[in-house]
């Protein structure tokens, strides 16, 4: 379904230019690039659904992706959108390696898809690479946690007079 596009610019260069991989050493970039490929998703195309195996993660270069959940008896709910400079998904890193949300392209989305199984193997072989990646994902998890907390406060409904 997914179009694997011609690799005009090398995956390695694209990764090096992406904020998520900022300051990563040449060797690590080479290792990671070996697990990656360019992909393009059309508007409305589903990248994955809740419960699908999390074999890939996506480094977003262009376009936006909606993360949603289906609630039986209710219309689906979009709870986050991600765009250029962000990465989609950490479920590939942690067992049971299953997606916990649906992801849909909102417009034409260009990503570098990284093969999670390939990357996990490289991280197991090279703990320094594993640590460097885990630290980056921990940063994302911490940001998402802060944003979830903020939303739990339901700030816009709040009484400003406390």
């Amino acid at each position: 379904m997914t179009e694997v596009v011609a690799q005009r610019q090398s995956i390695r260069d694209l990764l090096a230019a992406h904020p998520f991989f900022a300051d990563l050493g040449d060797r690590d970039l080479d290792l990671i690039a070996g697990c990656g490929q360019n992909r393009v998703f059309r508007p409305g195309q589903v990248l994955f659904r809740e419960g699908d195996p999390a074999d890939w993660f996506h480094v977003i270069r262009r376009g936006r992706i909606a993360l949603g959940i289906s609630i039986p008896g209710r219309e689906d709910l979009i709870i986050d959108t991600l765009g250029p400079g962000e990465v989609l998904g950490w479920s590939w890193l942690f067992p049971p390696h299953v997606w916990t949300m649906d992801a849909t392209a909102l417009d034409t989305v260009h990503v570098i898809a990284l093969d999670g199984v390939c990357l996990r193997g490289k991280c197991d072989d090279d703990p320094a690479l594993g640590y460097s990646l885990a630290r980056r994902f921990a940063g994302i998890l911490s940001d998402r946690l802060a944003s979830t907390r903020l939303r739990l406060l339901d700030i816009y409904q709040a009484d400003p007079h406390g």
Binding site: E75, L77, I78, D80, T81, G83, R151
Partner: peptide, 12 residues
């Protein structure tokens, strides 16, 4: 904070 699928803007 959240939206129905008809919304094409940002959520977050």
């Amino acid at each position: 904070d959240s939206a129905d699928p008809g919304w094409h803007g940002d959520v977050g």
